Simulated scan of single mutants.
Amino acid sequence: MGHREELLAGAQECLHDKGWGRTSARDVVAASGTNLASIGYHFGSKDALLAAALVASTAQCAEAVDQALTDDTPAAPAADPLDRFERTWERVVERVARDERMTTATVEALAQAPRVPQVRSALAAAADLTREDLALTFHATGDDEERTRVLGAFYQSLLLGTLVQWAVDPSAAPTGRDLAEALRMIVDDSTS
């Protein structure tokens, strides 16, 4: 592994342990086993390095969530859409609960997006793909772009809200069953 990769790994470690605002260049150097000059040479600045580390961390998060979304058991597909919703969100929430680093990195990236253009553009690009993936996980919407966008945005809001709740208070964060039950309540209330 070269200095660039070591710096990225060290920066990811620091972001998890200390957060953006409390991480110094010296912290990254200590975590990566490199030197201060390497930060400037490979990234230009500490902030550019931290932005790259956040982008890498959120990409890992997206991969983990995508795996949870697509890891359905083909032998027992749920006939009821709400049952399928519940099973899928149970996997997603379990993945979020299992990987505190992933959750922390995503919430940190969301907090930095308004101030760091590199993070904002990476999240925006990922959001487009995530919305479509989420919509297609639950609905056959590929031919209707507006339907895909609206449904994907709904599921993305659930995902990001769940990540934030897990970051703030894991004991009060919703489970997949909670999310499905809430949706059942909404449907029941609308038909009553």
Rank of each mutant, 00 (worst) to 15 (best):
M1A: 09
E5L: 06
L15E: 04
D17G: 11
G19N: 10
R22P: 00
T23I: 09
T23G: 09
A25M: 10
A25L: 12
S32E: 13
S32C: 11
G33E: 13
T34E: 10
N35T: 08
L36H: 13
L36I: 13
S38L: 11
G40W: 13
Y41D: 02
H42G: 10
G44T: 15
G44E: 14
D47Q: 14
A48R: 15
L49F: 11
A51H: 00
L54R: 00
A56R: 15
S57I: 01
T58W: 10
Q67K: 06
A68G: 07
T70V: 03
A75I: 03
A76M: 07
P77W: 02
L82D: 05
D83R: 02
F85Q: 01
E90I: 08
E90K: 05
R91L: 06
E94G: 07
V96H: 05
D99V: 06
E100L: 05
R101Y: 03
T104D: 01
T106R: 12
T106N: 07
T106D: 00
V107Y: 01
A109N: 02
A109G: 06
A111E: 11
V116C: 09
D128N: 11
E132L: 13
E132N: 08
D133L: 12
L134N: 02
T137V: 13
A140M: 01
D143G: 13
E146A: 14
E146W: 09
R149I: 01
A153K: 05
A153Q: 12
F154S: 03
V164D: 03
Q165G: 03
A167D: 12
A167P: 01
V168P: 02
R177A: 15
R177H: 13
A182L: 15
R184S: 12
